[in-house]
């Protein structure tokens, strides 16, 4: 395997791809959000249960490439149990990191660092972004009292 390829399909990524977290459907949810990258065929459904300002539980159903599935799984694992403010902050940091901006990950979230490998493959960045952007948009719509949103990380062509 070539080095950049090795860097993208790291063990942590492949582990999340093979056994994605957050696949258990939730009986009650506070908000849901759908992400879709039509030119890839990546589709993502996300549901969140909140309690006392904390992300109590999260369900993600992602149909797509290894990167979008792994990234969604990492989102589910990371934000579960975090306060809404903290979850938002992490999502923002991941987004910046994927877009190549200078962003520091908190020490206890080093797993997310493995998403960095995607940056060497510009066309795949949107795959890694989809879950995080869908989560953030969903949260924002919830906070502004809007209904379910539809999100894409493909640029308008």
């Amino acid at each position: 395997m070539s080095a950049p390829l090795d860097d993208m399909y790291r063990d942590i990524i492949m582990d999340h791809f093979r056994s994605p977290r957050g696949r258990k459907q939730l009986p009650v949810v506070d908000f849901s959000s759908n992400g879709r990258n039509p030119s890839c065929g990546d589709e993502l459904k996300l549901q969140v249960k909140l309690e006392d300002g904390i992300v109590k539980d999260i369900y993600i159903d992602c149909q797509g490439c290894a990167i979008s599935i792994a990234s969604g799984s990492m989102l589910a694992e990371t934000v579960k149990g975090k306060s809404i403010a903290e979850a938002k902050r992490i999502a923002e940091v991941v987004k910046q990191m994927l877009k190549g901006e200078n962003a520091e990950l908190p020490n206890d979230l080093e797993d997310l660092d493995s998403l960095q490998g995607v940056r060497k493959f510009p066309v795949r960045i949107k795959c890694a972004l989809l879950a995080w952007v869908t989560f953030m948009e969903g949260l924002e719509d919830y906070e502004h009292g809007h209904g379910e949103g539809n999100v894409t990380t493909e640029e308008d062509k």
């Binding site: 395997m1 070539s2 950049p4 390829l5 993208m8 039509p38 030119s39 890839c40 065929g41 797509g64 490439c65 290894a66 990167i67 493959f121 795949r124 795959c127």
Partner: peptide, 29 residues
């Protein structure tokens, strides 16, 4: 079990360039 984009990325790492996705034919897919 492997998405077309992942296949294309692996092929590209071997110098093999292909198209992956819907090929502008969503109704057909």
């Amino acid at each position: 079990g492997v998405h077309a984009h992942d296949v294309a990325t692996v092929l590209d790492s071997q110098g093999v360039m292909v198209r992956s996705g819907y090929h502008c034919t969503m109704p057909l897919h």
